[in-house]
């Protein structure tokens, strides 16, 4: 089986010419289907950059970056747009649309799926919000939801299209320990049900135990891989 994520010799730099500052240096990484991987490391180590490259939110410059079978180095705009719709991306600051209700926010992801009727979208969005425990909040706007609830709506939006890969950028950063824990367990449970792969960038030591693998990053390099038990100790 082909890995969901397959990175070989990936380099990335910000700035141009002599001002170029390398942020990712010789990254090699393969993630198998169904795996939950945590990427951790000090701020400025390049975690978020790597994640945004994998999500097609930035153009890859050098090396090979294959996501869900699509090579992203040298990929055109169209391929990037198409890839983004197949990935569930969870942002650090939930990034919900303030003007839309929870259900409408989730629908936004469904609108991109061809062949779904309006009613199909309603059914799917409601079911997904139910699954994240917000069945009673479908018509609430983000302003009227707590931080944890907002992040759960964001998870619903990312998972409702049943993507094979979830990329999450510090999803617990703005949450207290209990809701952070709940959010991550929710992701874990839903991912198992849908058999999808999760790559989670985090600083949060409290959630490391949900991962199959923990990868440490420093100064733009992957420095070591651990199993969760070793990290928690």
């Amino acid at each position: 089986m082909e890995p969901v994520v397959n990175i070989e010799g990936l380099h990335h730099a910000f700035g141009k010419g002599s001002l170029a500052k390398p942020v990712l240096i010789d990254i090699n990484l393969a993630i198998q289907p169904g795996e939950i991987v945590i990427l951790t490391g000090p701020s400025g180590s390049g975690k978020t950059t790597l994640l945004s490259l994998m999500g097609g939110l930035r153009s890859a410059q050098q090396g090979s970056l294959r996501i869900l079978g699509q090579e992203l180095t040298g990929a055109g705009k169209k391929q990037l747009v198409e890839l983004r719709s197949r990935i569930g991306y969870i942002f650090q600051a939930h990034n919900l649309l303030d003007c839309l209700t929870a259900q409408e926010n989730v629908r936004m992801a469904l609108r991109l799926q061809p062949g779904l009727s309006y009613d199909d979208r309603t059914t799917a969005a409601t079911a997904m919000l139910d699954a994240v425990g917000l069945g009673h909040r479908v018509n609430y706007r983000p302003d009227n939801l707590s931080g944890g609830q907002k992040q759960r709506v964001a998870i619903a939006r990312a998972l409702v299209t049943q993507p094979k890969l979830i990329l999450a950028d510090e999803p617990t950063a703005a949450l207290d320990s209990q809701s952070g824990r709940e959010v991550v367990q929710l992701m874990q449970r839903l991912a198992q049900e849908q058999n999808c792969t999760i790559l989670l960038v985090t600083h949060d030591n409290r959630i490391l135990d949900i991962a199959h693998r923990i990868i440490h990053m420093e100064d733009g390099r992957l420095v070591r891989t651990e199993s969760p038990t070793a990290a928690v100790v």
Binding site: R84, R86, N95, L97, R157
Partner: peptide
């Protein structure tokens, strides 16, 4: 918000 939509696959 438009950037978010772009990130989840809007062209």
């Amino acid at each position: 918000e438009y950037a978010t939509l772009k990130a989840i696959g809007y062209s």
